[in-house]
Amino acid sequence: MKVVIAEDSAVLRDGLELLLTTRGHTVAATVSTGDSLQSAVATHTPDIAVVDVRMPPTFTDEGIRAALDVRRAHPSVGLLVFSQHVETRYAAELLAGGTQGVGYLLKDRVADTKDFLAACEQIASGGTVLDPEVVTQILGASRRATNLAALTTREREVLALMAEGRTNTAIARTLFIGDGSVEKHISNIFAKLGLPPSESDHRRVLAVLRYLS
């Protein structure tokens, strides 16, 4: 199995290389940036690329965005996103292009090197390996997006003003509607976001958090 590793941590990068080579696999290149990943894959055409999510220069999502570019340019190359973070938007996009030869594992949840190696081999041969926590977060993000999509334009406007900390009276004044209309819109928002009355939860805060996420 020929592998390209994209990881900004030198210690982890060298550790993965040592692990793979001692088990008889070939590490064709190790890189520390998303741009270098694309170049390395184009040069070596590996069986699999192991990619971290957060890489230089901003350490946000460069790695997984580079993985998506690799997927589009080299669909036969297996991809294992190996990170401490779940980027639900890009993970869903990666899986939407087909699950063959794709994996997403969380570093903290891989307890055995044998499991990691088995995952690499499975992905390189066209299989799919997903951490259950990744699946849970992707599905949760999908449900939240679906719920927000169900809001009308006016309900979205009301929710946006709620997120700014406006009171019902201030929202009514801004949108030139009555206080009763604002209350009705907020009630509809709670219903569509699946936020029933509760003594332990503040629905207004939960709705705003849902909107901001």
Rank of each mutant, 00 (worst) to 15 (best):
T113G: 02
A119D: 04
Q122V: 07
R144V: 01
V134W: 00
A119R: 02
V102I: 15
F116S: 00
G101R: 02
K107M: 07
V135L: 14
G103V: 08
R144Q: 13
I138A: 02
R144K: 10
N147H: 09
P132L: 11
L130F: 12
Y104W: 09
Q122L: 11
A111G: 14
Q137Y: 08
Q100L: 14
N147A: 13
A111V: 13
V135R: 10
R143P: 01
T99Q: 15
A124F: 04
L105W: 03
G127R: 04
A141F: 07
K114N: 14
T128M: 10
S125M: 08
Q100G: 15
G126M: 06
A145V: 05
Q100S: 15
V135Y: 05
A111H: 14
V129F: 00
S142R: 07
G101N: 05
Q137M: 10
L139K: 11
T136N: 10
L117I: 12
Q122M: 12
I138N: 00
F116L: 15
P132N: 11
E133M: 06
S125F: 03
I138C: 06
R144P: 01
L130Q: 07
Q122K: 12
Q137I: 09
D131I: 03
A111K: 13
G101M: 03
I138G: 00
D115A: 15
C120Y: 03
C120Q: 06
K107I: 04
G101K: 03
L130D: 08
G140A: 09
G101Y: 00
I138V: 12
P132W: 07
V129C: 02
G126Q: 07
D131W: 02
D131Y: 02
D112P: 03
L130V: 10
V134K: 01
A118R: 13
R109K: 15
A124E: 02
G127Y: 06
K114A: 15
A119I: 00
A124M: 06
G140H: 12
V110Y: 02
G140D: 12
Q100W: 08
A119L: 01
Y104S: 02
E133L: 11
G127V: 05
L117P: 00
K107C: 05
V129W: 01
A141M: 11
V135P: 01
N147P: 03
A124V: 05
V135A: 09
L106T: 05
L105C: 05
T113L: 11
I138E: 00
Q100C: 14
